[in-house]
Amino acid sequence: MIENTLLSDAVQALKPTGLNYEFLLDASERGAFIRGLGVTLELCLLTIPCSLLAGIALAAMLTSGNRPLAGVTRAFVEITRSTPTLVQLYCAFLVLNMLITQQLREWGVSSNPLTPFIWVVVVVSLHKGVFHAEALRAGIEAVPSTTLEAARSLGLSRMQLLSRVQLPLALRFALPSLVNNVVDLVKMTAVASAIAVGDVTYESIMIWSQRDNVLELLLLILLWFGLLTWLVSVAGRRLEHRLRMPGYGQ
């Protein structure tokens, strides 16, 4: 009761400024908006680690020394980073998802387990994963040759060399670029609204389609994404400071 009174007072206090936040007083609309905030946060928490894992896998294939594998991976990287995320999402959800659904029906499976939410996670993770891969590839190539020679002298295989020497060092070298990519990824999750995933952008669109409060909701969306990207930036800077190696990047 006290919270509702405080919220009502805050809404009334903002009215003289021209900002109409009366939708917050409606329990259903307020609940939908809060759920949208949660879905956006959930998308970020899932796509960040998935994109990093995709980037590591792609970087490993690019630098594997296997020319056919590296060639196929290079083609995937070039196509993915040269086309818009929204177009990729539409192609995945409207085309690939339909083909999968048809195939599942032929096998006697009535429902497709790949929901719009999952498609957003997959597409955004892969799209940003190729940028992570390029940053990591540059980091792998920046590992001093003397370090690699010393590791080879210990009898490490190519895979051990990559997993125990090159990737750990590459992650440190590429960390500033990776953090920048993650910040961009957080903003990229807004494309989820294009296929009706109930993130904060989609829920806001549903609300302002019933009310004349586009500006008010856009301000809240900007603040929410600003908060998320700021948190990622702060965490990234602290991680960079913690993992900084003397003699590199100083």
Rank of each mutant, 00 (worst) to 15 (best):
T73M: 07
G71L: 10
V77M: 01
V77T: 05
A70G: 02
M98Y: 08
A60Q: 10
F93R: 02
A92G: 03
L96C: 00
L94H: 02
S82M: 08
N97Y: 02
E78V: 08
V72D: 10
N97H: 06
T63R: 15
A59M: 12
Q88Y: 05
T85W: 12
L96I: 02
V77G: 03
M61G: 15
L69R: 09
M98K: 15
T85P: 14
R67Y: 09
A60E: 10
L86P: 02
V72N: 15
A92L: 14
L58D: 11
M61D: 09
N66I: 07
V95Y: 07
Y90D: 00
M98D: 07
A70R: 09
E78A: 07
L62K: 14
N66D: 11
V95H: 01
T85G: 14
L58M: 15
Y90F: 11
V87L: 15
L89W: 00
I79L: 08
L62I: 04
S64P: 02
A70H: 06
S82G: 10
V77R: 04
N97W: 04
F76P: 02
E78Y: 10
T83G: 09
N66V: 09
E78S: 14
S82L: 06
L69V: 12
A92P: 06
T83H: 09
Y90C: 00
Y90L: 06
M98F: 13
T83W: 13
F93D: 02
E78T: 01
L69D: 01
L69T: 04
A70S: 13
V77F: 05
M61L: 13
A75H: 03
A70K: 08
T63Q: 11
V72A: 13
